[in-house]
């Protein structure tokens, strides 16, 4: 026991001292083995994933059925591109019907009128409760159910009348099938968006002399958009892929155009890859677009003007630390 009166040398105090900021990269030594053993699940999973990736890479590179040359050839083929364009405008048409119809249905559901509210509820119940594929087939065969469509006074004289078959073409059937189904889902999104705006916003607008209608248009709806836009973006992406369902009624959109080719050439796998690649390209573009639209409608939400999503998250964390 020599005279070393330093209290800091006591073993208890020493244990609290950790070498901070001194770690350097070095080759693993004998002492590192326990670290690997301590997280066996993670290391096992990582090994499995790496093996699977290697197998997939090997398959993609060497598969005889997946001919990259064929994929490249059909990727820019005129017929396939025409199918892609049809997919795009079918998506646009169906989403337009979905958004407009969904907004009307949402307003009906929120209405004080029990009849309107019930009608909207019944619509949503039906269109969400039956498969989309069945609905598309139903619209395609509507002529068997309603042979003639006429415009005139209900139960009264007719002004214009036409055969349903001539009026509801394949494109009309596909648009109605996709759009009316989408309206049911969009109405729930719009309704949730409107209800998420604080009722005190309407109150403040009312106190300033705004009518209910003006307050909704100028104050509530723009703020509801912030909640409506992100799920609508997801719906659009879903819709883009959902249009492939109308291949069952022989509408030559992207999938059906591809099917037409491989029915002839038997190059099934390369052509399905062509379709997948195009869907991926468009969904990627839509995702980027969604990001910018969200940023526009998210204005006023954050402390920084037009901050990006990541910046907003970081700012939020920073605020929490400060408070």
């Amino acid at each position: 026991m020599t005279a070393e009166p330093s209290a800091a040398r006591l073993p208890g105090a020493n244990a609290l001292e950790r070498p901070v900021g001194r770690r350097q990269w070095r080759l693993p030594g004998r002492g590192d083995l326990p670290r690997l053993v301590r997280k066996p699940a993670r290391w096992t999973l990582l090994a499995v994933v790496l093996v699977l990736l290697a197998m997939l890479g090997h398959l993609l590179a060497t598969s005889s059925s997946l001919q990259w040359g064929v994929v490249g050839h059909w990727f820019v083929n005129g017929g396939i591109l025409a199918g892609l364009v049809r997919t795009l405008y079918l998506t646009a048409l169906a989403m337009t019907i979905g958004i407009v119809g969904g907004t009307v249905l949402a307003l009906m559901r929120l209405s004080k009128s029990a009849v309107l509210s019930l009608a909207a509820t019944a619509y949503i119940w039906f269109f969400r409760g039956t498969p989309l594929l069945v609905q598309i087939l139903f619209w395609y065969n509507i002529a068997a159910f309603v042979p003639r469509i006429s415009i005139g006074v209900p139960f009264g004289p007719t002004l214009i009348s036409g055969s349903t078959n001539a009026l509801v073409t394949t494109l009309v059937a596909a648009t109605l099938g996709l759009g009316l189904n989408e309206a049911a889902y969009m109405s729930e999104i719009v309704r949730a968006g409107i209800m998420s705006v604080d009722a005190r916003q309407t109150e403040a607008a009312t106190a300033l002399g705004m009518t209910k209608r003006l307050a909704f248009r100028r104050i509530v709806f723009p703020q509801a958009m912030r909640f409506i836009i992100p799920p609508t973006g997801n719906q659009t992406i879903s819709m883009l892929k959902g249009t492939s369902l109308v291949s069952v009624i022989s509408l030559p959109e992207l999938l059906y155009s591809v099917q037409l080719v491989y029915a002839r050439t038997f190059q099934t796998i390369p052509l399905l890859v062509v379709a997948c690649l195009w869907y991926l390209v468009v969904t990627t573009v839509l995702s980027v677009g969604q990001h910018f639209v969200e940023r526009h409608f998210g204005r006023g939400e954050s402390r920084k003007r037009s901050a990006s999503f990541m910046e907003r998250m970081r700012a939020r964390q920073f605020d929490q630390i400060l408070s």
Binding site: D198, R200, Q201, E203, A204, A205, A207, I219, P222, Q223, R226, R299, G300, E301
Partner: peptide, 11 residues
């Protein structure tokens, strides 16, 4: 009218 919770239009 001025409210307890301000109620400024957020957008």
């Amino acid at each position: 009218m001025v409210f307890q919770s301000f109620n400024l239009f957020g957008h």
